[in-house]
Simulated assay, not measured.
Amino acid sequence: MMTALTTSAQGTGARVDLIGTIHSEWIKFRGLTSNIALAGFALLLLIANGVAMPWAYVFRDRGSPQADYDAYAEMIVDKTGYVGVVLAVLAVLLVTNEYRSGQIRTTLLSIPSRVPALMSKATIIAAVSFVIGVISSLIGFAVAPTILTGGGYSYQLEAPDALRLIGSSGLYLATLSIIGIAIGSLIRNVVASVLTTIVFLVVAPVIPQMFSEYGTEITRFFPIQAGSFLLAPHGTDPMGPWGGYLVLAAWTITLFTAAAITLKRRDA
């Protein structure tokens, strides 16, 4: 079966440009039920977290000082990065499934320069992830005050801060998901790429804390941990929200650049 890219290229007699490539990738993305299911699963997890966190606060056992703290708005979105691993895995599958099926050869015949194909996949998963982050955080912030009020609690959240947290949720997930595109393109194998993504994002940050007295400091510079400062209360870390995001962006740009270079130099 010919891909949408090949059909488009034959119909125009020309190479497909980036806009056409993005459109074709969107057709491929929405055409697979598994893609929609994983994206929907991530959305449901984030919504569930946004609802569960205020409920957990209301029913928290405040017998210890660690459990007795004031409610804060960021609790609604502070686990966003860990749920974002699902979207990073989805991104891996967008790439590796084409290699497994052999469809990648048809894609690259339509886009000889190759890099636009990678960019289009990154654009699609970033856009989907951004929308998921925005929608889930909107729902969380809409529902949480009612839950907290029912237990006699509340938090203060001004409109500019709400917009910042909602937008940052989408930005965090969008940037994190591109790491999955990069890892999938570098490794190509479905299982190996998925496992590498999970180990890199979830397991690797724990290792420095096991073997070094500076482990906590080192862990701050891993993607999920650094990006999470976007959604943390002010003053949580000297790196600050945008400093943390720059660390996440640096990881993403480095991996994506390596993937693009490798894609251009390696056979399909």
Rank of each mutant, 00 (worst) to 15 (best):
I253E: 04
T123C: 10
P116K: 08
A52F: 05
P241I: 00
L87V: 03
D267Y: 15
P205G: 07
G167N: 07
P208C: 08
V134M: 07
A204E: 02
Y72L: 12
T21V: 13
M1E: 08
L138F: 08
L246C: 03
V58D: 06
T262Y: 11
L171Q: 04
Q209Y: 02
A204P: 03
A9S: 14
Y245F: 13
N35I: 06
P65K: 12
A204R: 01
M239E: 00
S169V: 07
E74T: 11
N189A: 12
R266T: 13
Q225M: 12
G133Q: 01
G167I: 08
V128C: 02
G151M: 11
R105N: 15
Y82A: 10
Y245T: 01
D237Y: 02
R188L: 13
I124S: 04
V134E: 04
A14R: 13
R220K: 11
T219V: 09
V89Q: 06
W55P: 02
S185F: 08
N35H: 13
A67C: 05
N189K: 11
R266F: 13
W55F: 13
S212I: 07
W26G: 12
F130L: 08
I125E: 01
V92Y: 00
S110D: 04
S101I: 15
R164P: 00
K79Q: 09
M1G: 06
G13E: 14
L109F: 12
I27T: 11
A56Q: 09
R100A: 15
I22C: 14
T96D: 10
T149Q: 09
V77Y: 02
L246W: 02
V16D: 08
I179V: 15
L163F: 06
I47P: 02
S34K: 10
V95P: 01
R100W: 14
G31L: 12
P233N: 12
L43N: 02
L195H: 00
N49S: 10
G81P: 00
F29G: 06
L171Y: 01
G63Y: 08
Y82W: 13
F222D: 05
A91S: 08
L90R: 02
T219E: 13
V85A: 00
